[in-house]
Amino acid sequence: MIEEQTLIDDLKQTETQARAFEKLVNTYKERLYWHIRRIVLNHDDADDVLQNTFIKVYRNIDNFKGDSKLYSWMYRIATNESLSFLKSKSKKMGIDSVELQETLLNNLESDVYFEGDKIQLKLQKAIATLPEKQKLVFNMKYFDEMKYDEISEVLETSVGGLKASYHLATKKIEAYLKEN
């Protein structure tokens, strides 16, 4: 916690900013990348969103009040950036969000940066059928193995609501995998 506060203080001071930013990127890049990648699915898009997330963090660090953990704040920015990215992508392509998910999944099969087997692809297809919130909760809990408290801080939802979302998500995924 003290280390996090030092990092924040260093990010806010011009003379220590560059070094602190490097530390920030190196500390959180992988966790944030995988979180974003699970939402946007494609590597190039994930890279774009991740870079924009860090740029936003860098430029808005003065607005960080410390009400939540730095990590949760960055996760929240990454989530919002990813969702906005998908929205603008579907707008550009002139399709709705469901059609966009289908396109992303179809592209995943031929993606050089996807080496999943049939069941992994099927799982991604099952996740794609979930509503946005359940999708986020499932990914954060199942793949990221985040605690409900941490997810609650990022998504600003009660722990009870998250548990219900996760339960519903797993039931839907199980049903999808049995049917398909």
Partner: peptide, 9 residues
């Protein structure tokens, strides 16, 4: 269920 997504970088 697989515990990894199969994504690569």
């Amino acid at each position: 269920l697989p515990t990894k997504e199969g994504f690569n970088v």
